[in-house]
């Protein structure tokens, strides 16, 4: 109401002056354009935009939607309590199951052996345990794979869940 009265007064004052014919025509053309733009914008702008900041708030929900692939080791322990106990007593206690076994959620759901990875081979253990000048000795025990029991699979002697419990 206030704005309209200001507008009316403004036009009345303008009427006192000579206005060249170009101006009202141009004002009209621009007015149509701007109105069209504002109308379009109203319909195009996403609903939740601006709620928390300059973004579509519904995107927070979108980002929470993706499927999980890793279950977390607590999920493993619900079935594999024996391994949980063994692991907690040896040097691999701090290592989570899925570090070696890969994404485990599929297996937690289905229970099938095929749905989880069972690592094997010297190169696999070597990713952590091979010598590298960049690995601190305090962080990981390192071994020279070129010399130590060549040709044998590591888990032939070492139980991966209890590495210092040697298999006979």
């Amino acid at each position: 109401m206030f704005l309209i009265s200001i507008y009316v007064i403004f036009i009345h004052i303008l009427m006192k002056f000579y206005i060249p014919p170009q101006i009202p025509r141009l004002a009209f053309a621009f007015g149509i354009f701007i109105t069209l733009f504002l109308v379009l914008r109203h319909f195009l702008i996403p609903d939740t935009f601006g709620k928390y900041g300059h973004y579509r708030a519904a995107s927070l929900i979108d980002n929470a939607k993706p499927e999980l692939h890793y279950a977390g080791q607590l999920a493993c322990f619900t079935c594999h309590q024996d391994i949980e106990e063994k692991k907690s007593q040896d040097v691999h206690s701090e290592i989570h199951c899925e570090t070696c076994h890969g994404p485990g959620l599929k297996h937690v759901v289905s229970g099938k052996k095929e749905d989880i990875f069972k690592p094997s081979g010297r190169e696999f253990c070597g990713k952590c345990h091979s010598f590298n000048a960049a690995k601190m000795k305090s962080a990981v025990f390192q071994i020279d794979l070129a010399k130590h029991n060549i040709g044998k699979n590591c888990i032939e002697c070492h139980n991966p869940h209890q590495p210092w419990q040697m298999k006979k």
Partner: peptide
């Protein structure tokens, strides 16, 4: 791993890091 954080789980990289780095 926002989708994991929202469920109270750790990001995948932190879940599997063997040394807790």
């Amino acid at each position: 791993c926002y989708h994991r954080l929202k469920k109270g789980l750790a990001p995948a990289c932190m879940e599997v890091c063997p040394t807790g780095a």
